[in-house]
Design a protein around this nucleic acid. Structure first.
Lengths: 192, 192
DNA sequence: TGTTCACATGAACACAAGTTCATGTATGCC
DNA sequence: GGCATACATGAACTTGTGTTCATGTGAACA
């Protein structure tokens, strides 16, 4: 019989972990369930990962890096700051749908500082990206003058809120268009 | 010696629970810790609450109702829709800071539907409130025409995002002013 | 066929945390 | 005091779940 190589097994476990953690978040996910999903025994997981936290951290690093790279790539192709901002928002909402359970902050305390740091660094990177877009926007006169840092923080907050909304009520959602429309234009009527 | 009455004890437990759950969320909070904080034994908690979930549900109902009422009260005193919206945002951010761990969605599955429903209903009520404000705004000509329902959803999302931001990085926050400013005015420069 | 190596297994262990319950103690009433 | 009632205790039980480890198995090669 053809047995899986170690590398294949490790990848199976990672894939399974992404699936289960995405759905259930950290605490609610059991190693047994990941193992089952990956078609391996409980002990098998521990051949490739030191422990549950290691598994989570590996997966987090992988996903966030992948996401970061793709976003950067997408933004590069955009012509104006409004389009770029829209692209970032669309990208975020898309990933949020797929990996909701992972983004949410869980497992604070108990040595999880490593994971929190990874997330923090990720969000910082995202914020810088958004700040750059806003700067370009104001420089070209398309965006109004504003506190770039704060605006970027609010936008990051908006994107995080979408994940949260997914977890609570996946029917009451909104599209990237709606979202970027409000961020760009606001609610107040413009003087003509 | 003067012993606490049952009612007093129950209230102590609820207060303690609010404190601990707010900081740690559902999974990370232990009944023992709540008991200790309330100055009662583990068993004592079970005199007044059926179990941990019951404790959480009670507290959730209490807090959300309190918050709902206060928000409504505050909004009533506001003169225009922009002010009203600002008030809602400020109220949300203030409560988020205090009770962050509680709002976050945890303990899905396993019969937690009751709690999720409470949260859903709460958010629905909040959304209606915001929808009304937006409607008033457009009716008076101060807000532009827009899809009221969607706009309200996005705003709720923004507010949720703030809670989330608190959990991940409580230094990278923003004020209610910044937030309402973006929502009202948007980023794009207005034609003059 | 025997040997070795890489990979896999799942029962068993450890420990944390929710829950129960037999027992204890204060208070008020007769 | 004796009794009843209300309230409180915390050891012990139960369960879920992370983790370990002695043992097993397939593949490749001599």
């Amino acid at each position: 019989m053809n047995r899986r190589t170690g590398k294949e097994s490790k990848e199976s476990i990672l894939e399974a972990a992404i699936k289960v953690f995405s759905e259930k978040g950290y605490s609610q996910t059991t190693v047994r369930e990941v193992a089952k999903e990956a078609g391996i025994s409980v002990g098998g997981v521990y051949i490739y990962f030191k422990n549950k936290e290691d598994l989570y951290a590996t997966l987090l690093n992988y996903l966030l890096k992948d996401f970061s790279d793709r976003t950067k790539e997408t933004v590069k192709d955009m012509s104006g700051p409004a389009d770029a901002l829209y692209a970032v928002i669309a990208m975020n909402l898309k990933y949020a749908r797929r990996y909701k359970g992972i983004i949410i902050a869980e497992g604070r305390d108990r040595g999880f500082k490593s994971c929190l740091d990874v997330k923090k660094r990720f969000f910082k990177k995202q914020r810088r990206l958004i700040e750059d877009i806003i700067k370009t926007g104001t420089a070209s006169g398309k965006f109004k003058e504003c506190n770039v840092k704060t605006a970027a923080r609010v936008i990051i907050g908006i994107l995080r809120g979408f994940v949260f909304s997914l977890l609570i009520d996946s029917t009451a959602l909104y599209s990237a268009e709606d979202c970027s429309n409000i961020i760009l234009n606001g609610l107040l009527r413009r003087k003509e």
